[in-house]
Write a protein that binds this DNA or RNA. Structure first.
Lengths: 144, 144
DNA sequence: TTAATTAGTACTATTCTGGTACTGATTAAG
DNA sequence: CTTAATCAGTACCAGAATAGTACTAATTAA
């Protein structure tokens, strides 16, 4: 499995939750945790990262909460993943190339770029608005 | 980062190495480890999994070794990842749906399919032959 | 017969994630 | 002005998973 951390998992769940409501829909971390049945401290952690990534806005103090910084159609899945996990790449050698001691001799080194490009392009093109469209067909499942 | 295990990392490196040689090119695990500068026991482990996945063939005994089971153009990156990591999905809830206790209330549940489809399609379309094409341009880098 | 090589299993240390707890800063409401 | 709700930040811990090693058996060319 191409793994993402659970933090990212939760992040996408939460962003989808926002996207399913009207624009400007705001909610506290506690309420979000309750509605999505996710552990509350985790939710707070995720919301903070998404805030720092510019995907959410926050209102502090009583009656405060979080809301989407942009419209769902303007938020790509790639942006969410990048906010929570950093650059979308399958191996670290492509993001911090100089760190790999095998760079000089690695036969795959130049090729990872192609793989990463494919992934980036694919996730860049998919927005929250796409995700919350109701119709999901069963024969739309992956071949694997 | 969209993480794969180092086993998969090594697997792609090794498959690229094979693809860079003539069809029928065979090599022992020891030689492969030396040429790619990867730890030898790890290489053996990866080769075995790729063999079981039908991506490689093996010759036992002295002068034995491994070779590609098919032409590079007929081996997708998706196939390699699937052999080493199982189905390509970003979260386990989509591969073993009944295991997620939040399935009923999860607002993202039906939507993961779309994300996974995008990834599967992207990696299915990318073959070893594509990867070993020489020209990789620098401005071909991911936007991130 | 021997040596090279694949095949399989078991084990361990380290790293990372997931999760919790605690404290401080900010602000609406009474 | 006080209080309570909420966001913000940091530190910490346990459990799981990965990365890597070691060892043994089976197979086959020379």
């Amino acid at each position: 499995m191409l793994r993402i951390t659970r933090l990212t998992d939760y992040g996408i769940v939460l962003m989808c939750y926002f996207a399913q409501h009207e624009p400007g829909f705001a909610r506290s971390a506690r309420d979000l945790a309750r509605d999505t049945h996710l552990p509350q401290p985790m939710v707070s952690k995720v919301l903070k990262v998404l805030l720092q990534g510019g995907l959410l806005e926050s209102r502090r103090g009583a009656q405060g909460g979080y809301l989407l910084a942009r419209l769902p159609a303007e938020i790509s899945i790639a942006a969410i993943v990048r906010a929570l996990e950093g650059p979308i790449a399958m191996t670290s050698c492509t993001t911090k190339g100089e760190a790999c001691v095998r760079a000089a001799s690695c036969p795959a080194r130049p090729n990872w770029m192609r793989i990463n490009n494919v992934l980036n392009d694919a996730l860049d093109d998919l927005t929250l608005a796409d995700l919350v469209q109701p119709a999901v067909q069963e024969d739309d499942l992956p071949a694997a």
